[in-house]
């Protein structure tokens, strides 16, 4: 079972089999996105998206804040903008802010990273603009607390206890502070929806929050909340991508096994196309 790696060389371009696959995996996503974007634009009715309880809960939470006349607290995680979870969180914030603006509910976004604060402010500004009430936007509600993790956590706890938000939305990448935040929110009797792809923190969110978005649901949330068929087509595309992934894993296992028992020599070469090195 000697690894004979396929290799592509073209002038200065030199790619291993694994790199080719990486490239193709991105291209595949682009193609799927484009295909479903087109298809759904032509025929919006062909799209079905199941209810995702956690995401529905976000809207409920905003509604509840309005009823109670109390603000929303939106915590975008503690990661910098480099992290895709923060980007996803920002996109959700845009939709949440829009709903909040429509209901005339105040929204607080404390940030750990100044850059994230800048983006959050743009997101909320856009949300208020979309809702047609740009004058209600208060940039001061998006604040930088400290870039130290626990100093930040202490600051957010302060907001939970002082401003008494009726809903805490903890969406983004969280680490050790997840438990402190959700415990404090629980004590303050706020409705809590959390979401992260950070597996280590999910058990704490699951225990202490009312709803939890797990992993990919976080990325799906902004499209889901937008109700925009063009964005929802994304979810359809990733679902198809998932089918392809499952197919590849099964096929790979089959081929490796066939090679191993000697029915098809060289079949395990297929797997080498997924080796980065």
């Amino acid at each position: 079972m000697t690894p004979v790696l396929a290799h592509l060389s073209l002038g200065g371009l030199s790619l291993s089999a694994g790199q080719i696959t990486v490239f193709l995996s991105v291209v595949l996503m682009v193609l799927l996105l484009a295909y479903f974007y087109q298809r759904i634009r032509k025929d919006p009715g062909s799209l079905f998206i199941r209810r995702i309880a956690g995401i529905d809960a976000i809207e409920e939470a905003v509604g509840r804040c309005t009823e109670m006349g109390r603000p929303i607290l939106y915590v975008p995680g503690i990661e910098d903008m480099q992290d895709i979870q923060t980007i996803a969180s920002m996109l959700i914030l845009g939709k949440v802010a829009e709903t909040a603006a429509r209901y005339k509910t105040e929204i607080f976004v404390p940030c750990r990273i100044p850059f994230v604060m800048s983006v959050a402010e743009e997101m909320v500004r856009q949300g208020f603009y979309n809702a047609g009430v740009p004058e209600d936007h208060k940039p001061g509600n998006m604040s930088f607390i400290s870039d130290e993790q626990f100093a930040y956590t202490a600051g957010v706890n302060g907001i939970m206890l002082r401003e008494r938000p009726a809903a805490n939305l903890l969406l983004g990448r969280f680490f050790a502070e997840s438990l402190i935040l959700s415990e404090t929110g629980f004590e303050a009797k706020a409705i809590q929806v959390a979401g992260t792809a950070e597996v280590t923190q999910l058990p704490f969110f699951i225990a202490a929050c009312d709803y939890t978005l797990i992993g990919e649901e976080l990325f799906a949330a902004s499209a889901y909340l937008s109700r925009d068929p063009k964005l929802l087509s994304n979810l359809k595309a990733t679902d198809w991508y998932k089918m392809i992934c499952i197919g590849l894993m099964l096929l790979g296992s089959l081929l490796v096994t066939l090679d191993s028992i000697g029915w098809w020599e060289g079949a395990s070469l297929f797997r080498d196309f997924f080796r980065i090195q």
């Binding site: 996503m29 996105l33 895709i84 980007i87 992993g215 976080l218 990325f219 990733t238």
Partner: peptide
């Protein structure tokens, strides 16, 4: 795997 797909599609968006 799910999160990677989510990240790729979000990034591309």
């Amino acid at each position: 795997i799910g999160a990677a797909l989510g990240a790729i599609s979000t990034g591309l968006r």
